[in-house]
Design a protein around this nucleic acid. Structure first.
Length: 510
RNA sequence: GGCGUUAUGGUGUAACUGGUUAACACGUCGCCCUCUCAAGGCGAAGAGUCCGGGUUCGAGCCCCGGUAACGCUACCA
C-alpha cells in the first residue's frame, strides 16, 4: 500500500497581492441572514485591508433558480448597509459577475482538465447514479461514485460521444493520497482521498457545479481570501485539487462558524425566520441587524474594565457597536468556532436599544419608511375601502397588518367540525403549500384549493382557518390579497409561530 | 455508516504567554420608580469550563483517550 503522506501540501498565497474577497449567494429564494453574516465578515475583512469586496451571483442551478431573487439579494444587502466594489449590478474589471453568463469559461476550463488528465467524462444517467447510491446505502457502504467511467477506453468514449449520449465531467481525484490545506482559523486539515469523491464539475446540461465555477471564478477574479461558512470544509480538498490541476496559486481559506437554530442545527427557515426581507418588513433596523451579526462568533473585543471606567461606559455598551466600530476593532483571529445560535430575543433587545436612541423625528421617519409607509398603506387601503363607513374603522379592520403577534384563541380559529389535531396537521400542510407557491393571487389560491381537495377540506373551511390564524378574526379583508400585501416572509412566519405555540401548548397539556 | 469540525451558565461572548471566590451582555426571578405596560435603577438565582486520565506548586487554557452536537457525504449551493 502506498504511503498516505500529505503530498498535496500547498502553500498559501503570500501577503503581497491586494486583498480581494467575495460572497457568492445563489438566487434560489429570499435573501438569507447567513448571506448577510458572511457578507459582513467579508466586507470587514476587505475594508480593514484596503481591499476589494466582490459580489458574485451563483446561478448555475437552473432547477432552483428564482428570477426575482437576485434583485432581492442586492436590495437586502444594501438595506443592511453593505456595498460591494464589483458585482453584476455595478460592473467591474473581472466580469461578468453572474455565473450563468460565464458558462463558456467553465466549459473551456473543463476541457483543459480533460486534456491534462485531471478530469474524465462520465456517461451514467442521474437515475443510474441514484440506483447505485441506494444499493450502497442498503449495503451499508459509504455512498460514493464507483469510478466506473474513469478508465473508459478512447474507443468507448468516442462511441458514446458519437451516440450523442449526455455526460458529466468529473474530477479525477488521485488515489492513495491525501490533501492537506490550512484553514486560517483552525490550522491544517487533512482529507484522505478515499473520502473525497470524484466530484461532478460540469453537469450534463452544460452548467458547472459550484466546485468548478467557484474555483475558476475565484482564480479569474483574483480572489485572495475565501471567507465562507463552515459547511464548505468538507469540499475544500476538491477545490484544492482543482487549483493544483490548473496549476494555480491557492487562496487563503477562512471557514466561519455556521449560524444555528435554537436547537443547534444549521439555521433553517422551518425553525427560524431567515429571510432578510422578513426582518426588514417586520421593522428591524438595519444597524441593529448588522450589530447583532457582528456579535455572533466573537470578533469584537469586549471593553476592558479600565475602558468601562475611564469612558464611563454602561456595561451593556460592549455589545452595541456600529459598522464603523467593527471596521476599527473587529479581529478575525478572535472568532470563536462554535456555531452561534441566532437568538431572536437578543436581536429584539438590540433593536429596541437602537429604536430608543432615535430622536422623535427619526423615529417617526423610521415608522413612515417601513411599517407605515405610503406604499404599504396604499396597498392595504383598497382592501377595506368598500367595507368601511367611517375612516375611524380602518384600525379595526387592518390591525393585523401592523401587528407582530396575532394569536387567536381556539374559539376563533378551530373549525367547529374539525378536531384540534387534524386542524393543526392541515395548517402544517397549508404552510408547506404556501412555501412552495409563487406569491401572487392565482398561485396562492390554486395551491390552497388543490390541497383542500386532496384533504377533503371545503374551500370555506380551508380559507377560514387561514384567515383566523393570519388575521386573528373570522372576518377580514379578502384573504389572498391580504396575504400578498402582508408579504410572503411575514405570512409564513405568522403561520410557523402559530404552529409552534399550539404544539407547545399541546405538549404542556400532556 | 464514513469523513470533518466544534465543545465555558438557557443564549451570545470574556478570562494576557497556565496563577486567587470563571467576567460582561441578553433572558429569567425579586424589589424600587409608576395610573398601566415598557424603559430606567437596585439585587438574586444560574456554569466550575462535555467526560475520564495525565503533566504541573497550580489547568477553562498544555498532552492522551473517550463522548456528544453539528456539517458534509447530490449532475444543490
Amino acid at each position: 500500500m502506498t504511503s498516505k503522506a500529505p503530498v498535496n501540501q500547498h502553500p498559501s498565497t503570500q501577503e503581497a497581492s491586494p486583498v480581494r474577497v467575495r460572497i457568492a449567494p445563489s438566487p434560489t429564494g429570499d435573501p438569507h441572514v447567513g448571506t448577510a453574516y458572511i457578507g459582513l465578515l467579508n466586507y470587514i475583512y476587505a475594508r480593514q485591508r484596503s481591499g476589494q469586496f466582490i459580489l458574485r451571483i451563483e446561478d448555475t442551478d437552473r432547477t432552483r433558480f428564482v428570477p426575482t431573487s437576485e434583485q432581492m439579494i442586492f436590495d437586502s444587502l444594501r438595506w443592511v448597509g453593505l456595498t460591494w466594489d464589483e458585482g453584476p449590478d455595478v460592473g467591474g474589471p473581472y466580469g461578468p459577475y453572474r455565473q450563468s453568463e460565464r458558462t463558456e469559461i467553465y466549459r473551456e476550463h473543463a476541457e483543459m482538465l480533460l486534456a491534462n488528465g485531471h478530469a474524465y467524462r462520465s456517461f451514467e444517467t442521474a437515475e443510474e447514479l441514484e440506483a447505485m447510491r441506494q444499493q450502497q446505502i442498503a449495503a451499508k457502504v459509504p455512498p460514493r461514485y464507483n469510478g466506473a467511467h474513469r478508465h473508459l477506453t478512447q474507443a468507448q468514449i468516442d462511441a458514446y460521444l458519437a451516440e450523442g449520449r449526455p455526460y458529466t465531467v468529473r474530477l479525477k481525484v488521485p488515489e492513495n493520497q491525501s490533501t492537506t490545506f490550512t484553514d486560517e482559523l483552525r490550522g491544517p486539515i487533512t482529507f484522505d482521498h478515499n473520502n473525497v469523491d470524484d466530484q461532478v464539475l460540469l453537469k450534463s446540461d452544460g452548467y458547472p457545479t459550484y466546485h468548478l465555477a467557484n474555483v475558476v471564478d475565484d482564480h479569474l477574479m483574483r480572489i485572495t481570501d475565501v471567507i465562507r461558512a463552515e459547511e464548505w470544509i468538507s469540499s475544500t480538498p476538491k477545490h484544492v485539487l482543482l487549483y493544483a490541476a490548473f496549476g494555480w496559486e491557492l487562496p487563503r481559506f477562512w471557514h466561519m462558524p455556521l449560524l444555528r437554530n435554537t436547537d443547534k442545527s444549521k439555521i433553517s427557515k422551518r425553525k427560524n425566520p431567515v429571510s432578510l426581507v422578513f426582518y426588514q418588513q417586520s421593522g428591524y433596523l438595519p444597524q441593529a441587524m448588522l450589530n447583532f451579526l457582528g456579535l455572533l462568533g466573537g470578533g469584537m473585543a469586549q471593553p476592558t474594565e479600565q475602558e468601562i471606567v475611564s469612558k464611563g461606559l454602561n456595561t451593556k455598551e460592549g455589545d452595541i457597536f456600529s459598522l464603523a466600530e467593527m471596521l476599527e476593532k473587529f479581529d478575525f483571529r478572535r472568532i470563536s468556532l462554535g456555531g452561534p445560535v441566532f437568538d431572536l430575543v437578543k436581536l429584539k433587545w438590540l433593536n429596541g436599544e437602537y429604536l430608543r436612541k432615535l430622536t422623535p423625528e427619526e423615529f417617526f421617519t423610521a415608522l413612515r419608511s417601513t411599517i407605515l409607509s405610503d406604499s404599504y398603506i396604499r396597498a392595504i387601503a383598497p382592501l377595506v375601502q368598500s367595507r368601511m363607513e367611517i375612516l375611524g374603522q380602518f384600525g379595526d379592520m387592518t390591525g393585523f397588518f401592523f401587528a407582530d403577534n396575532i394569536l387567536p384563541p381556539e374559539s376563533v380559529w378551530l373549525p367547529k367540525k374539525r378536531t384540534f389535531e387534524e386542524s393543526l396537521a392541515f395548517i402544517a400542510e397549508q404552510l408547506t403549500a404556501l412555501e412552495a407557491a409563487a406569491w401572487e393571487a392565482e398561485a396562492i389560491e390554486s395551491s390552497l384549493k388543490t390541497l383542500g381537495e386532496a384533504k377533503q377540506w371545503s374551500v370555506k373551511e380551508n380559507f377560514m382557518l387561514l384567515r383566523a390564524i393570519l388575521t386573528g378574526s373570522t372576518s377580514s379583508p379578502p384573504l389572498v390579497e391580504s396575504m400578498i400585501v402582508f408579504g410572503k416572509a411575514r405570512t409564513l412566519d405568522r403561520l410557523r409561530r402559530f404552529l409552534d405555540v399550539q404544539k407547545k401548548q399541546a405538549n404542556q397539556r400532556k
